[in-house]
Structures are given as C-alpha cells and as structure tokens.
Design a binder for these strands. Structure first.
Lengths: 116, 116
DNA sequence: TTAATATATGAATACTTATTCATGTATTAA
DNA sequence: TTAATACATGAATAAGTATTCATATATTAA
C-alpha cells in the first residue's frame, strides 16, 4: 500500500487516534464488560434480576435452560461484578451489583425503542 | 429442586421477569450490538474513526494488525451499521454511522473513568 | 489494455466460549 | 450421621468467531 489522496487529513487523524488511544488494559476492561452482557443467556439473567433478587432455582424458572448452564453463567456474571451472591440457608440469592451496567442496558433499550 | 424459603417473593419476581421479558428478537439485536463492540480489535477501529473518517490504509496504521484482519472487522462493523463506507477513487473511506453506539461507548468510558 | 494499487473475501486454522454431563460440596432436616 | 436439597464445578464437547493466507475484484495510471 502507498498513500491515499487524503494523505494529510488522514495522517492527522491517525496521529490523533494514536495520541488518544486508550491504555490496552482499559480497553480490555471496557470490552470485557460488553462481552459479558453480549450473551443472550447472561442478558436474560441480568434482566430478570433487575426485577429483584432471586435464588438459583427461581432464576432458572425465569430464564429457562438447565441449572448447570445457569450456574456457569452466574459465575461469569459474579466474577465480573455484575451480580453479587449471598447465601441464605440452602439457597444462594443473587442480585444486581453494578449500577453502571444497568444504565448501559437501560440506555440501549431506549435506543432500540424496546423500553420496559 | 424444590422450593426456596422465599417462595412468595421470588415467585412474584419470576412472574414479573416473564411478563417484562423482551421479545427474543429484540434481545438478540441488543446483544449483538454489545457483541460487535466487545472485541478489542473492533473497538480500536471505532475509537479511531471517532477521530475522523479514514481509508483502510490509515485505519491499519492507526490500530495496527494486518490489512486482511482489519478488512474483515470493517465488514462486521459495516454489516452491523456501526460504520459506513464510501468509495473515493481507489480508496474506501470509512466513517462512524451510529450515534447510539457512540453514546454507549462514551458513557462506558465515563463509568470506567477513562474518558478522552 | 496492462500493471500497479487498494481493498475485499473464501477457506483453513486457531481460539474462545457456551453448554452438557457427571459429580462434588454445603446446608438442613430427619 | 444419613439423606435430601441447592448449587457449583471440572471435563468434554459443541458452537462460534477472529486471524491468517492466498487470491480475487475494483480503480487508476501508464
């Protein structure tokens, strides 16, 4: 490849992009947040927990699927601090832990015109 | 599994979750938007194009990696209407097409405290 | 019309990740 | 202290997806 016919403009933009580039670590953090909520099976869990805290049995009831699959996804959500867990007797009760993600999701639903 | 000791509470939440559940299609749409921006290689392209439109050669310069990989990601971004392409002579100039995604990214950077 | 440039793309590969299955651990009740 | 319940988890598999390599297409200049 050589030069395009907007060499000056584009080169300036390239430099700006490089100058403003996020740290690789922050980029990874931001992207992994989006990755966590980009899986429908996890998004369903988040949306369900937005209605209120629940134990695993009821989460499974709310979102469908089998218990093991739901537990695996719960772990990913917990590891990424999207939800938190507290034990209550034999049950583990899960709840939303991250307001930021709620805002992102709420905003996205507005953009998609499928608000609650 | 049987019943947890918050049966009434949780059951009500389950019903609310089911009642408010998004249509499977909308859920898929929303999640695929997050999926598109959850890949660092694509996020870098988006962030670079937020500085201004560029041709492929300069996008490659800005984000690194090889031309083929960048072209493949450009296609995914274009197919998902995140960016748009216009031909200009031998070059294809790409630019941001979706304000919503910009808002989501900008908001996320705020939450992460790594604003521009 | 040929050569060179800029970009796109199909196929193969390599990674990543979701799901399933079987089983393990923690808690409570008997 | 045994049995049952609720949940977690390792390993295997299946599905999805990014990247690479080789090559194709489009445009322009010679």
């Amino acid at each position: 490849m050589e030069l395009c016919n907007h060499e000056n403009d584009h080169e300036r933009i390239v430099q700006a992009a490089k100058a403003h580039a996020m740290k690789e670590e922050d980029l990874g953090t931001m992207c992994s947040i989006f990755k966590v909520i980009s899986e429908p099976s996890r998004m369903k869990i988040i949306l369900a927990l937005m209605e209120g805290e629940m134990c695993v049995y009821h989460i499974v009831e709310a979102v469908g699927g089998n218990q093991s699959a739901v537990s695996h996804q719960l772990r990913i959500l917990k590891d990424n601090r999207v939800i938190r867990a507290k034990r209550d007797g034999k049950n583990i009760v899960y709840s939303i832990a991250d307001e930021h993600i709620l805002n992102i999701i709420t905003m996205s639903r507005k953009h998609l015109h499928c608000e609650v």
